[in-house]
């Protein structure tokens, strides 16, 4: 701070606290709503204080499959989300670090072309090529499979760029020393580059895990078998009730549980998260 202005500092705090309260409002209301029963939420404006149905609602959503009208058990969907997020994270990091290694440490024909092909993925998000991508996955017989859910999402230009940038900062002497000692490329990669990349891998994992966890359109396109439903699809199904009432207390309990894992990761791994976010997006 350049100068001391107590009143302005007071205003700053007041602004941030009010701002936080507004930003947190939807989540607060969701937590509150998840502790009431269905009749309270149907008849009146949502109460602002917790009710007495916390345990009932959460145990129902976690154990009672019928709570989510015809969906698989909530914990089953949570497990699917977890598998999907982990496979995407590991897959993206693995293939990106290998391609960055190839692009930085080797000189070979079509290197430039390979780089541009990877770059193009940035310009083709799933949302703009829904039908043809669906058709290819269908033709390959990958609908309703883990392979179909994860592999098409694994290509990553941003992760490749991040590792490429990082490898460019690794001193050339490392490579020369390794070669003098008779290390081949894969040994150099495993024993030197990989350990050096630890922080970058950590930062990237946080971002990619969230990316995988919140996937919505892709799982919706390629899975029709409820056994593969992820939490995000489950949430959508829970609010599309054809006739009858939406059980808001269960929807809100489900929402709270679905956002908890990534939020905890962001809060407790904040340094890695911020690093991952600011490094990958440039």
């Amino acid at each position: 701070m350049v100068e001391n202005r107590p009143f302005l500092t007071f205003l700053t705090h007041a602004f941030l606290i009010v701002g936080f309260l507004i930003v947190a409002l939807p989540v607060y209301v969701a937590v509150i709503a998840s502790t009431h029963d269905v009749s309270t939420l149907m008849s009146q404006t949502v109460p602002l204080w917790p009710g007495s149905h916390f345990i009932e609602n959460y145990s129902r959503i976690l154990t009672d499959a019928s709570a989510a009208n015809g969906l698989p058990n909530y914990s089953h969907m949570a497990l699917n989300s977890l598998i999907m997020a982990v496979v995407i994270t590991v897959g993206k990091i693995a293939i990106s670090i290998l391609s960055a290694f190839a692009i930085v440490y080797f000189r070979f024909p079509f290197r430039q072309l390979a780089f541009w092909i990877i770059f193009v993925t940035l310009m083709l998000p799933v949302e703009v090529r829904i039908m043809p991508t669906y058709k290819i996955v269908a033709d390959l017989g990958m609908l309703n499979s883990w392979a179909g859910l994860t592999i098409p999402l694994i290509a990553s230009a941003t992760a490749t760029f991040l590792f490429r940038q990082f490898f460019m900062t690794v001193p050339d002497e490392m490579l020369e020393a390794a070669r003098v000692d008779g290390a081949g490329p894969m040994k150099f990669f495993r024993d030197i580059l990989l350990p050096l990349s630890r922080t970058n891998i950590g930062a990237l994992s946080v971002i990619l895990f969230i990316y995988g966890w919140v996937q919505y359109l892709w799982p919706m396109l390629v899975t029709t078998d409820p056994g593969y439903y992820t939490l995000m699809m489950g949430m959508k199904r829970m609010v599309t009730v054809q006739d009858g009432v939406i059980e808001w207390q269960l929807v809100m309990a489900g929402s709270v549980l679905a956002m908890l894992p990534p939020i905890l990761i962001v809060i407790f791994m904040q340094r890695l998260f911020i690093r991952g976010l600011t490094e990958t997006e440039k």
Partner: peptide, 17 residues
Amino acid sequence: LLAPQLFITLVFFIWPA
């Protein structure tokens, strides 16, 4: 080393596009 990345990109990104 590049094969997995390029394969996925060609099959699931460039071909559909």
